[in-house]
Each structure stands twice: as C-alpha cells, then as structure tokens.
Nucleic acid binder design. Structure first.
Lengths: 233, 233
DNA sequence: TAGTGGTCTAGACCACGGA
DNA sequence: CCGTGGTCTAGACCACTAC
C-alpha cells in the first residue's frame, strides 16, 4: 500500500479524523507523536502540529507534553452559539425591525443579581427597559442594568435610533462575560406584551459582561413564545 | 518611547486586543499588515499571523486577502457551551447519579421531526425513553430516536449500566449535528415525573447528529425545573 | 531527567480577490 | 495585475510533566 503524501494541514486533519472515527486508534489510546506522523505523511512537523491542534480544539483528542496525544474517551459535545444582534436577527426573518425604550431610570440592583453582576454598593446604575419588534409584534423584551461608573457616556444617550445593546457593543468593549439560558413563565407583565397566557413558557437569556473585572452591564432578554436558539456543528 | 519587543503570539494578541479596546484602531478601520506589525514587534510574520488568527476566531477582526485586516464593527457575541455528559453533570453537583430506561421500542418518526432528522421512509428506528436521576430525584427526561440502519449494534444493548447517550458517544462517531434550545411547559407526562404543575416551564434541548450525512440519532432532553445552561467567555 | 508538545524563525510559494 | 493573508518548510529552542 502506497501512502499518498499529505502536505496540507486540513488534509492531515481529515485523515487523522478518519482514523479516529474508524477506530484505527481506539478511544483512550495514545497516537503516534508529531515527529512520527510528519515522517509518515512526508511533511514538516509544524503541519502535523497544526492539524492536531485543530482536533484538540474540537475536543477529539487531548494533548499533554511528554504524555503525548490521546484519543478522547468521551468527546465532549461542544456547541458555539452566535448570539445575533437583534436588528439583524429580525431582518434575517424578513420582518420589519423596530424598538422602543420603555423605561430609563437610575436604580439599585435587585439582590438576586448581586452574584451575577458584582458591582459595589455605591455604584451608579442605569436601568433600561426595551422592547424589540418584528413587524410591529413584540419579539424580545430586554431589562438591562448598566454600570455608569464604567461607561458614564451611556447615561447621556437617547436610545431612539440606536439601542442600548448596540451602543454598548460599539462603545464599551468587554473582556469577559457570562451567559445563562433558562425557561421561565411569561408572568403578568410579559404576558400582556406578548398577548399570551401568563403560563406561557418563554426562552430567557441573561448576559453579564465585564472589562478587566469592572462590571459593565447585565441584561435579561425574554424572547417571544416559540423562540428557538439554534446552532450547527 | 521605546517599543518593547514582543515575540510571543499571546503577548502580541493582547497588545493588538488592547489597541482595539482603546480605540487606537477604530471599528471598521484597516490595521497594518502582518509584515508591518512583524517589523514593529521585532518578530517573524508567522507569529503575528498566529495572533491575528486568534483575534479573527474570536470575531474581533475580519481578515481578507488583499483587503487586509479590519477591526470588526459589531463584534458578534459568540458563546461556546460544553454540553456535559449527564453523569458528570450530576456528580459535579455532588449528587448521586442513576438512570432508568423506561421504554424501548421500534417506532416510526413523528412527522414534526422529519425536518430535523431526515431519515428515509423505510428506516428502522429505535425509540428509547430514559430518565436521569440526581439523588433519586428526576434530573432530565430523554426521548431518543436512533437510526438502526446506521448503528445496528445499538439495538442489541441493554441500557442498564450504560446509557443510550454514552453508548452512542463511544460507539457512533458523528461529523455534524444540530442543536436547538427552547422553553416548553412540562405538560401532563413530565409534570408527573418532576412532580410539578403542568404549566411549569422547562428548559429543553434537541440535538440531531449525523455521520457523513447519514442520520444517527435525534434526542430531546427536558431538564428539571430551574435548570440553567451556563457558559463564560 | 528525558521525551513530548508548544512555539519561534527566516524564507518561500501560493490563492484569493480588490483595483 | 499584484498586494495581502494563508500556508509550508527545516531547523531550533523551550516548557511542561510523566517517569
């Protein structure tokens, strides 16, 4: 059997992927080192390294110095969601986009949010409430606390043309964050907005962002009934 | 001002990240080419390339040949969820794990799943229903259709020690998939399992996997009331 | 301590795609 | 066309860590 020379890292990645899928290398087994594979494929070690790094990022193999590269036993299911800008998401559905600022007031942080959004006691927070529409029907309901000590300019914006979210995305960079998804009943207030029963289940996302440990904003987004967050992998 | 020489790709990534955060390079602006940056930092172009690739994967910049590298205007919010093995998730909470197979029958695919799980008409499907417990309290309820034409051996397994999911993870590799999250009411059946009102909102995930376009399995996972899917970025 | 992956270099060629 | 990013090479040194 003649081994075809593979010299592109994507080809090598696919070949290694195939060997794992076909159980040529068993789960938990240590596969040959970079140098050996490079020799087999007739390419530089760097190229093999690139392919193996891609497989490691995908979770198919685990790599450790000295111990070598092993086929993952339980390849973790990883899924990357791209949280779209609401405006783009609505327009992608072919609907007309609009939004409306319902509330804008300096307020204290509800106690239950202290863990998720650790601002100090004396922090100045602006609370905003925004509804996003698709074809004049409510699409998403947003409740947001923003740290004015971190982004003072946020307090001076009229959110008629731009949304709080869009302004923050463009003007308040963040370095880390936390995202949570859960299900909740619409309840009294949201049931009126979405014109459904109070017991209607809604998909809710909460996101907190921070810049170098300085809390920027915390937002709860309640989506219209039937909303689905979807991704392929 | 003396420019400190940066010769590690992570240092360079951080420096470029800082310049973007500090608006030294405006959103939408084209930043210097790899060769220029390499000269500035006193390192090889490969190293700058590595740093820029990382920023591109994070969505902070967009890169195109000839056009160069631009600072992203609306950095997309990306979040990677790691869908854990239920056994590990339960044990990570310090609870005792167990599971129970409730049902196991060859069945046809419900019409509403045809879009998400495109098996042919004559496909042999095994339907399994499994409850996962944490400390003897129901944690997750799983309804699964598995394509026996793709993984015949699946039909011969007694799922007392291993769960359908674990068996598939270890024995049926997949190359692509689709993940959907939404909120749903418990309804009659699940309300009895979780011992809650029928109107209780539950967090639901549906996952379909395929190997080279051959559908493998479709699973709906309904989590206990109050469950939250969480990730940091 | 020795073996393995991780990284950096200097140079080269190539592929894409804007002008 | 031709500039830019994408990739490959051969070699070197380093960092981590299992043994």
């Amino acid at each position: 059997m003649t081994v075809r020379e593979l010299n592109s890292w994507t080809e090598i990645r696919e070949e290694l992927h195939r060997r794992i899928n076909d159980r040529i290398w068993q789960p938990g087994e240590t596969i040959p080192g970079e140098a050996d594979l490079a020799e087999e494929f007739g390419c530089a070690r760097t190229t093999v390294s690139r392919a193996l790094r891609a497989l490691a990022e995908a979770g198919l193999v685990t790599r450790r110095r000295k111990a070598g590269t092993r086929v993952a036993v339980n390849p973790p299911h990883k899924a990357t969601f791209t949280i779209p800008i609401i405006r783009e998401e609505v327009e992608a559905r072919g609907a007309a986009y609009s939004h409306s600022l319902l509330k804008r007031v300096e307020a204290g942080l509800p106690p239950q949010l202290h863990a998720a959004f650790p601002v100090g006691e004396g922090a100045r927070l602006l609370f905003t409430e925004t509804v996003y529409f698709a074809d004049d029907r409510p699409f998403m309901f947003e409740e947001r606390y923003t740290n004015l000590d971190a982004v003072p300019e946020f307090g001076t914006i009229a959110f008629d043309l731009i949304t709080p979210n869009e302004w923050l995305v463009q003007n308040a960079p963040y370095t880390s964050g936390d995202l949570t998804c859960y299900a909740a009943n619409a309840g009294e207030r949201l049931s009126r907005f979405f014109e459904v029963a109070q017991e209607t289940p809604l998909f809710v996302m909460e996101r907190a962002t921070a810049n170098q440990k300085v809390p920027i904003t915390h937002v709860r987004m309640s989506y219209q009934p039937g909303y689905r967050l979807r991704t392929r992998f």
